[in-house]
Simulated scan of single mutants.
Amino acid sequence: MLPRVLRRLLMPLLAVLMSGCSAVVLHPSGDVALQQRNLIVASTVLMLLIIVPVMVLTGWFAWHYRQSNTKAHYDPDWHHSTGLELVIWSAPLLIIIALGAMTWIATHTLDPYRPLGRLAAAKPVPEGTRPLKVQVVALDWKWLFVYPDYGFATVNELAAPVDVPIEFQITASSVMNSFFIPALAGQIYAMPAMETQLHAVINQPGSYEGFSANYSGAGFSDMRFRFLGKSQADFDLWVQSVKSGGGALTREGYLALARPSEREPVKHYAEVAPGLYDLILNLCVQPGKMCLRDMMKIDAKGGLGMAGVYNVGRLAYDRPPALNAGQAEPPTGLAYVLALCATPGPLWSPAPPAASAAAGN
């Protein structure tokens, strides 16, 4: 009687608890996430082919060979069975081979750096289709999205047309984060001074949740945004609304935006400073600061010796006072090399033979 009463009490409670679970990972709206879901399901089923029989047989053996069952066959001298050995070893081996083959194929097919080959099952990407390019910057604690082909940017709001490939370029301003839209595709890390990529597509219109899947500090819990899947017509209207409202995101404006803040509201910027994402990636948004790519070129040519050591210390990108205060100028201090430049032509060239002969005469 008691178990039945407990079931009646627990079932409504369980239903209430489960009502908050949308299980979006198992019901995605993007083809990449759908393929990843299918891989999870197939791998789970393959592993259950071993786990379920083992659990069932464990219970059956414990019950059948219990002490009170005098009818159970007792053979203390048994030590080997060729048929049983074949079953024990061949079944897991075949499952491991199948899992390995599936993983190898999916690793290459679902490589986030690989451009999409299809929009959905039996629906290849039309020839000549241009992907929607979105540059993603993980800030403390908000998301900046730059649309380079449209020349605008948004904060904590991302939109894309249905059945159009999306090419994400992802970086971070300070610490490592993780860009994740469960309905669209798997998560991928965002790291400062590095760029990761993600190719995906949304197949159904709707409003989906995006967030950071990697702890990054005090405001991590509220580092969320909305991803809007729209028809092409609705996406065009959204683009017009963004470009018609909001100001310009300048380099100084970005430095102010990059300061740590929590629960940042959605913002639209109708214009973006030229090459802002490239400046963020190369850690040189602050005016007068040497870009990472230029440092790397200098290092590739052998460096600047001891003078370069002082310059590196002077241009440290993650100096907290400079970053958090958003100051435009780099910290003052002793610098051995103030600037580098390239001449339009060679500094010296030998005189032509005719001129040399004339000079000799």
Rank of each mutant, 00 (worst) to 15 (best):
S216K: 02
A138D: 04
N214L: 15
L17K: 02
I280W: 00
P165Q: 10
R37H: 02
A248H: 09
I50F: 02
L93I: 10
P344Q: 10
V164Y: 01
L347Y: 09
A172I: 11
P346V: 14
T154M: 02
V242T: 05
S207A: 05
T154K: 00
C284V: 06
A98V: 09
A351E: 13
L34S: 04
Y336P: 00
T196S: 13
G308I: 06
N361M: 12
A359S: 08
L119I: 13
K142H: 12
T332Q: 15
P28V: 08
A355G: 02
D111S: 10
E252D: 13
G246Q: 03
G117C: 11
Y189V: 09
A342P: 01
P124M: 12
V134H: 01
F145K: 07
Q232I: 11
I181G: 00
P115Y: 05
M191F: 00
G128K: 08
P126H: 10
E127T: 13
H64A: 07
V146Q: 03
G59Q: 10
K123I: 07
P182S: 05
H268N: 09
D222F: 02
P350N: 13
L2D: 13
V25L: 07
G210P: 06
V52M: 06
W63M: 01
Q232S: 12
R319M: 14
T343I: 06
D234R: 03
Q327S: 11
A15N: 02
G128P: 10
M296V: 04
N156V: 09
S29D: 11
F227M: 13
R130E: 15
S216C: 09
E127M: 13
T103A: 15
L99R: 04
G20V: 08
L93A: 15
L10F: 06
T343F: 10
F152Y: 13
L119T: 11
L255V: 05
T129G: 01
G275D: 15
I105S: 03
A62L: 14
G326Q: 05
I105N: 08
G313E: 02
D31T: 01
T107A: 14
G117Q: 15
V56N: 01
N38C: 04
M18G: 00
A316R: 04
P287G: 04
A335L: 14
I105G: 00
M295L: 09
V45T: 04
K142A: 02
C291P: 05
P53K: 12
N311R: 13
L257S: 00
S174C: 03
A172Q: 08
P92M: 11
A328W: 07
L49E: 07
